[in-house]
């Protein structure tokens, strides 16, 4: 075989092989979770675990259908942990379709774990993405920013959201996001009002978060779906067939595939180079 051809494999062949490589583990659905847990995932777990019981966690949903494969497992595992530990939380969505998606995740867990809407958790519905402006104003006067919940029920009628007055009542911000909202939260809410933040970016945005993790501005991080699968190990679901675990396997295969391609491409490149020299 002519090795030189390896440097010019047609794109369409690469694409079909990629699809096959990714899809196979999703069908097989292995239950094994990663053994190692990264420090930032452990820190996220500890921060949420240690939140004072009289404060409320604020879960910010920035994701929509586009990044559902990464952000929904994160949302699921974090809500599960909050419910398990009886920590109260409110959810706010900045993404229109993400509103229903996140509400459904909470609702399913609420039923599974026997929790009560309005007392253990509450969904504040949707706000268009002016994170900077709303987060700032929300710290000053929470009730003024949010009058009704997801089902258009006044917040005053529910025990949990009615007691949140300002930033002082919020114990942690959990930002589940596919975009660069972490900086905004830091600048306009978590920095000025001194509230810890756990960020759950998609893997893409995670590299940007490391400086903030190191400086302590961000308390912990769930790095994409891998972070979610590690978090599942932490809350004792390490041997369940979950969406997160299957996806983690798929990603492993895709990474190995790309590395093989790079190697093949370089073999072709070297072969072509040698020929040219002759």
């Amino acid at each position: 075989m002519n090795l030189k051809k390896l440097q010019n494999i047609d794109k369409r062949i690469l694409y079909i092989l990629l699809a096959i490589v990714i899809v196979t583990p999703l069908f097989v659905r292995p239950s094994k979770h990663p053994d190692a847990v990264f420090d930032e995932v452990q820190n996220a777990f500890n921060t949420i675990d240690n939140m004072p019981d009289d404060k409320v966690a604020f879960v910010s949903i920035v994701w929509g259908p586009g990044t559902i494969a990464e952000n929904r497992p994160q949302t699921e595992v974090l809500m599960r942990h909050l419910f398990m530990k009886h920590k109260k939380f409110v959810v706010l969505s900045w993404d229109m379709p993400g509103t229903k998606l996140s509400y459904d995740v909470g609702k399913a867990l609420e039923e599974e774990l026997g929790m009560e809407y309005g007392k253990d958790w509450c969904h504040l519905g949707y706000r268009p993405a002016y994170v900077a402006m709303i987060s700032r104003a929300m710290g000053e006067d929470f009730q003024k920013q949010f009058a009704e919940d997801y089902n258009n029920k006044p917040l005053k009628e529910m025990p949990l959201p009615a007691k949140i007055k300002s930033a002082k009542d919020i114990g942690i911000v959990i930002d589940i996001t596919p975009s660069a909202t972490m900086g905004t939260w830091l600048a306009y809410f978590c920095g000025p009002y001194n509230v810890p933040i756990v960020t759950c970016p998609t893997a893409v945005m995670s590299a940007e978060a490391y400086p903030y993790l190191d400086s302590g501005q961000v308390s912990g991080m769930l790095n994409g779906v891998i972070g979610a699968s590690m978090y599942e190990t932490l809350i004792g679901r390490g041997n369940t067939r979950t969406e997160a675990a299957a996806t983690a396997w798929s990603l492993s295969c895709a990474h190995i595939y790309i590395i093989l391609l790079i190697v093949l491409g370089n073999i072709g490149y070297i072969a072509a180079g040698k020929k040219a020299k002759r």
Binding site: K11, L14, L261, I262
Partner: peptide, 21 residues
């Protein structure tokens, strides 16, 4: 979301083509 997910394919061809010694 499908347009967004096109990147999965493009990143493969970009890595394959660009990462040469």
């Amino acid at each position: 979301s499908t347009t967004f997910s096109l990147i999965a394919f493009y990143i493969v061809s970009a890595a394959y083509r660009a990462f040469r010694i």
